[in-house]
Design a protein around this nucleic acid. Structure first.
Lengths: 356, 356
DNA sequence: TCGTTTTAGTAAATCGTTTTAGTGACTTTT
DNA sequence: AAAAGTCACTAAAACGATTTACTAAAACGA
């Protein structure tokens, strides 16, 4: 017996030592079959007939030798990877990270992990990266602010995706509500000439954001002056591009009293451009952001913005994928097309009542 | 033949269809053995005796049915996961994301992926998360701003880790140089009473940063006034904690003309606190940050800061792990303890010459 | 023409699980 | 005392690749 044990522990050392004991080792040590151990350790019905005493021996030995089922063997057999894939534009944009926090919070509880890939808005990677994830046997995919350019039958959930694709659930902000909050806030403060900074074409929220804002403006009898609209260009997640957009608007020399930016990052750039032009925020021009990134509260002036619950969106996306995995094929047919979360208007100091 | 093909493609449909053809399927279709296909497709020496014609048949069939070796099967056999683990405090702190971008850039080229876990500075997760990664058979671990609290024989590389642990490589900033740049810059501008915001205890750079800054100050005959030193507290990556620290310093009512903050995020909070106290930056007080996050250039005033090349640090870390994996055990004994990257002083508008 | 080499492959073991289908040895029922 | 159950297990197949150790036939050399 103790001889056996010796053998095991020796064996263990001799291995890369990272890979612990195998079921085979353990079974030999106990003088039982692999089957019995597997049955008992996984608490399968087949273990019913095995007396508690034997079960305890097995549990004790597993504990003692710190047995961990080999991930590859288990996954190969079960055809399950306990892994999701997450596709993001890139990780340092202050957006994806928050979403991933939410994803991880949900997955960790279920013993799932996730692989991340960034497509950097490159068309080839947009196809290639998800393919690689699928070859890696991910069980489902979460696409964050990323268009779906790959075929698959796996569960797919997007965060801020707006393409209505059969079988794909989109976790989205209630954009109509967001636009109402934003335009409504500026309108209430008396602003009638509002400049807008649109998102880049590749950003999945650009279109819907613009449509809902247009509607909200129209509803209040505001007409949008094309010269007061600029679009973000370039794919770096830096305020620089907001600065450039704002410059463009200023160059048009059309009067305006407020700016509704596509996001907080571009709002920061816009503020810089305004101040360089000698305009004070919010005394001369109000600036409204979108997202509520961490820094928003500490800018100077502190940014008024529309908050997106990114952490919650990540959680919701992960939960939805796991739900689909748990469901039978029949039930899976009735997956929701859209899951909506609510925005929140956070009023700080970058917006003020229009000057008399 | 065409019958065979029919069978294969049917088989393919009938499966979850995500899992493509197996070698077995393919071999049956070609009337060859699994062995031959494996040998040829992996270009093993054993395939030397197989005529080009047969090889071509195999390649064509693999192409036609889009054969992809099963990841689990291959990994089980080879005891290789082609996956690294990355441990971070959390993903939305504007620091880890940049590092991960670098990591991914290197790994993608080699067909590697990575699993991420966040420990949120929690002691239990600091041990548990890496354990889970190891059970998932990662081949190496990259720890970003994270202390090593787990045993392993896998290659481990830290980014901004300072514990000298045998076998672990630390990718670090040249802190001495960074301190020289920072303190030197303020000194040159005439500042003699400088306040400091130290990092949280859990942050791996806190200690070394403080030591090197102290030295650089001493060297210039500056003495550090304890009342002008505050430490960040709390683990949210928000400027709020810098704001609180600055308030504390202000409460001491000791005069000072400059602040050297632990990082840009806390510098943002500090600026807010200063302005609330009626002090103008940089006219009354200069503020120096650290990191050079994206927003730094667009704050108001634009932040003078010490830039850390986070992307490069991520690349270097990943490269180092891969190198170690490629090395034989003998060579592996001479892994470098430390890899150093250089900081850069980025002068913007938050620092100015001291008032006469 | 016999022995050796080369050519063209293949059978089977292996990685470490899970799961199906058993197998003896007892015990209970009738 | 034979049939039917229960109990306590186990053998072997399967997941899908890689790899080692072969075989049978053809070609070559002396």
């Amino acid at each position: 017996m103790s001889e056996n044990k010796q053998k095991i522990s020796k064996n263990r050392e001799s291995k890369t030592s990272e890979t612990g004991v195998s079921l085979k080792n353990l079974a030999a040590h106990l003088g039982l079959s692999i089957t019995s151990l597997s049955l008992v350790l996984n608490d399968k019905p087949g273990a019913n007939s095995i007396p508690q005493e034997t079960k305890d021996r097995i549990f004790r030995a597993a504990e003692e030798f710190n047995y961990r089922p080999n991930y590859f063997a288990r996954s190969l057999r079960a055809q399950k990877s306990f892994t999701l894939g997450v596709v993001v534009p890139e990780l340092s944009d202050g957006y994806s990270g928050m979403v991933l926090n939410g994803v991880e919070a949900v997955l960790a509880k279920e013993g799932y992990f996730y692989l991340t890939t960034s497509h950097l808005h490159r068309d080839d990677l947009l196809k290639h990266n998800p393919q690689m994830l699928i070859e890696r046997q991910v069980e489902g995919i979460i696409a964050v602010d990323t268009p779906i350019r790959f075929p698959t039958t796996l569960p797919v959930v997007t965060v801020s995706g707006h393409d209505k694709i059969k079988g794909i659930t989109n976790v989205v902000l209630n954009h109509q509500h967001a636009a109402e909050l934003g335009v409504g806030h500026l309108f209430t403060l008396g602003h009638r000439q509002i400049a807008f900074i649109k998102g880049q074409d590749f950003s999945s929220d650009t279109k819907i954001r613009w449509e809902t804002i247009s509607e909200a403006a129209l509803k209040r009898g505001l007409k949008i002056e094309p010269k007061l609209v600029a679009q973000l260009e370039g794919d770096i997640p830096s305020p620089e591009i907001g600065y450039v957009a704002m410059k463009k608007i200023l160059a048009a020399r059309k009067p305006f009293t407020a700016v509704f930016a596509f996001n907080d990052v571009s709002a920061i750039g816009a503020i810089r451009a305004l101040e360089e032009a000698g305009l004070r925020v919010p005394q001369d021009v109000s600036v409204l952001g979108f997202d509520d990134i961490y820094a928003a509260a500490f800018l100077n002036p502190a940014l008024t913005t529309i908050r997106q619950p990114l952490f919650e969106m990540g959680k919701l996306a992960a939960q939805t994928v796991l739900n689909q995995l748990a469901k039978s094929n029949i039930e899976a047919s009735k997956i929701p097309q859209t899951l909506t979360v609510e925005p929140e208007l956070v009023i700080r100091n970058s917006t003020a009542h229009v000057k008399k």
